[in-house]
């Protein structure tokens, strides 16, 4: 039988820690809310007819959504870092790069500032090391 909770996680500390990871935006409520319409736009690309309409006139399609002009520009530029800054989540945005017939590796690589070749090479050699990438504050 469920009992009342005896120990609780401090949610403010929990959420603060999520912001302490270098080069990473954890998809918290704050981001989910900010990116709601952007992510729902991306979901709409799960229908072939929407993909066609979008590809035929990206701006016109985007204008049907309650998305800021900046975020629309990020979409049209295929700037995934910027889309994530606008609250996008990679699994939602996957519908966009899939519409472009691009892979997860392409999308991930595009966010690192590396060329696709260098990114692929880094992955083949064992991927990015977590060394120094774990904590902004702790620098470890």
């Amino acid at each position: 039988m469920t009992e009342k909770k005896k120990e609780r996680i401090n949610i403010h500390e929990y959420l603060a820690e999520m912001e302490d990871i270098p080069g990473t935006r954890v998809f918290t409520a704050q981001r989910a809310r900010k990116g709601y319409h952007l992510n729902q736009f991306a979901m709409s690309l799960m229908k072939a007819e929407n993909r066609e309409r979008f590809l035929a006139d990206e701006k016109a399609y985007l204008d049907e959504w309650d998305i800021s002009e900046e975020a629309k520009k990020a979409v049209m530029d295929r700037d995934y870092n910027a889309m994530i800054d606008h609250g996008g989540n990679i699994y939602y945005l996957a519908k966009l790069f899939s519409t472009d017939k691009k892979s997860f590796q392409f999308a991930a690589g595009s966010m690192t500032g590396m060329s696709q070749e260098d990114y692929a090479k880094m992955m083949l050699e064992g991927g990015r090391s977590p060394e120094g990438q774990r904590s902004i504050k702790g620098k470890y």
Binding site: T24, R25, F104, G109, T112, M123, G127, R128
Partner: peptide
Amino acid sequence: MSHQLQGPRAGLINK
């Protein structure tokens, strides 16, 4: 297992 699909830290692997 370990992976990151977003941001400048994408490609992280921790064997």
